[in-house]
Computed example of a mutant assay.
Amino acid sequence: MSAVEMDTGIPLLEVENLKKTFSIATSLLRKPLTLTALEDINFTVRAGETLGIVGESGCGKSTLGRCILQLIEPDEGKVLWLGEDLTKLGSEKMRKRRQDLQIIFQDPLASLNPRMTVGEIIADPLRTLRPDISKTERRARVLRMMEAVGLLPEMINRYPHEFSGGQAQRIGIARALITEPKLIVCDEPVSALDVSIQAQILNLLSELKEEFGLTLVFISHDLSVVRHVSDRILVLYLGRIAELSPGHELYTDPKHPYSQALLLAAPIPDPKTARARTLEGLKGEVPSPINPPSGCRFRTRCPYAKEICADQVPPLEDIEGGRLVACHRWREIEAELTGG
């Protein structure tokens, strides 16, 4: 098993030793550079849970989501769906799995075809993956799904430009749900929306998860967003896992310095609580994935880094109850912060 699991739930998805690189062309006379987007990624997703994936821009979150769905082919490793390795399937077999594996994109309007009506957009996966369904049944399913996501029936013949960002994202959610998938990758589905609309979409996703028995992989750069929807949270930094933890434990007792820094970066509405913070937040920029730091990739921004952090890549260690952390010094840091 690729990661330590809790006592409840069945693993639908297992990701083992996943690696993905991209070749970056610089000029005709120079050898292309290699960008390492993901390296040594291991985790499971159990039936009915929401796994949050967080990290700064450029850490590999969206690449990981697309590798899970085989929209991008990984260089190494396995993506096991109910025990079957998706990386070994041909295009035709993978096409059949698409019914169970869907995605909600970050930019709602950009993800919708402006030349298609709402009804056509939502029905499109059915036409592709369920050609056996009649036109009458397709329309009936579309109307049911529109109702489920809060869209009125009379909107079925309108075009995407006639909708707000929040309404457009509801269309994208309906499109993802129409094939009755088991797992949906939500790739920053609320980052392009106003705060008030974000809350509505997050509540909608929570309701739909319960109604349809969904399993979610929820990608975001914002820990405060992931907090409301995730059972477990995977913290990703520069293509490597920094920490994997139950959601409530990550927020109350983060182990990795990067997780601590991300929490400090999250806004606090209470001014007194914000001023009472004693730890420093993130400093500097994320290093280039073309030339990442040796050892621990976070060490160049970590206030606790020592020589070992530059010399050795920290293993993803099972510290307690299924919590995983990749840090050489997490015990020392914890003792220092707690005065133990």
Rank of each mutant, 00 (worst) to 15 (best):
L112P: 01
N113W: 04
N113T: 10
P114F: 07
R115Q: 13
R115C: 06
M116H: 12
T117L: 06
V118E: 03
V118A: 13
V118Y: 01
G119R: 03
E120G: 08
I122L: 07
I122S: 03
I122M: 05
D124F: 09
P125V: 11
P125D: 10
L126F: 06
T128S: 15
R130G: 04
R130S: 10
P131H: 10
P131M: 11
I133Q: 06
I133F: 07
I133H: 06
I133V: 15
S134I: 08
T136D: 15
R138Y: 05
A140D: 15
A140H: 11
A140W: 04
V142S: 07
V142F: 04
R144V: 08
M145H: 03
A148N: 10
A148R: 13
A148K: 14
V149E: 06
G150P: 07
L151E: 02
E154R: 11
M155C: 12
M155R: 08
I156V: 15
N157D: 15
P160Y: 02
H161A: 14
H161V: 14
H161Y: 15
F163A: 04
S164D: 11
S164I: 08
G166S: 11
Q167G: 08
Q167N: 09
Q167I: 05
Q167M: 10
A168V: 03
Q169R: 07
Q169G: 09
Q169F: 11
R170C: 12
R170Q: 13
R170S: 12
G172N: 11
G172I: 00
G172Y: 01
A174N: 06
A174Q: 03
A176I: 02
E180N: 13
E180T: 10
P181F: 00
P181K: 01
K182Y: 03
L183A: 03
L183N: 00
I184D: 00
